[in-house]
């Protein structure tokens, strides 16, 4: 047995290296979004006036978008479970559903941005605009990154080499759920509060 085989089969922590790496990466993402969200919170606390988001934002549209993203997390769970069962066609269907839902989220987000900009709220118009566009913008970029990953995995799943890389679906799922969690937090404290 070669050294690499030992490394891959018997990780010293019992957690596969890929999954471990994704979790460490997500820890750094928590710090990144934590710094952004924390800055928003303290700037807002220290600011003399703040527009009531409910009066400014289309909360119904953003509420629908929340449902879209939550649903995409469920389809992602289904994809991971199908992959673990070895049911590749079911996995591909669930992945495709996740991708379509993620795309819908970004589409509605674009609609939301256009609506705001049309109403005169831009990234440079007020502290609210700056925080809103920066925080949701970085979340949107993460959704986009997730979509690129999922599309690549969907294409890759047709190749024979995929059989050894089933764990990648689980790892991509972890990232996708994390992006969902970020939105859950942003929706409550940035959109609704």
């Amino acid at each position: 047995m070669t050294a690499e085989a030992v490394d891959l089969e018997r990780p010293a922590t019992g957690v596969a290296s890929g999954k471990l790496g994704v979790w460490i990466f997500l820890a750094s993402e928590v710090m990144f979004f934590g710094a952004l969200v924390g800055s928003y919170l303290v700037l807002r606390m220290g600011s003399a006036s703040w527009p009531l988001p409910a009066a400014t934002l289309d909360t119904t549209l953003l509420g629908i978008n929340t449902f879209v993203l939550i649903t995409s997390s469920v389809t992602m769970v289904n994809a991971v479970r199908a992959a673990e069962r070895g049911d590749l066609p079911a996995m591909r269907r669930s992945l495709l559903a996740t991708i379509l839902l993620g795309g819908t989220f970004l589409g509605l987000k674009a609609f939301d941005y256009a609506h705001l900009v049309g109403g005169g709220i831009t990234i440079g118009s007020s502290l609210f605009g700056a925080c809103y566009f920066t925080l949701t913008g970085f979340h949107g970029l993460h959704v986009l990154g997730g979509l690129v990953t999922l599309v690549s995995l969907l294409l890759f799943s047709r190749r024979p080499a995929f059989a050894r890389r089933i764990a990648w679906i689980e790892n991509a799922g972890l990232y996708w759920h994390f992006v969902d969690v970020v939105w859950i937090v942003l929706f409550a404290i940035l959109v609704l509060l």
């Binding site: 922590t13 957690v15 979790w23 460490i24 750094s28 928590v30």
Partner: peptide, 18 residues
Amino acid sequence: RILRAIALLPLLLVVAFV
């Protein structure tokens, strides 16, 4: 425990920092 620690540590730090 390892993954739980990795998830919990940054959360605590972020809260303390804010």
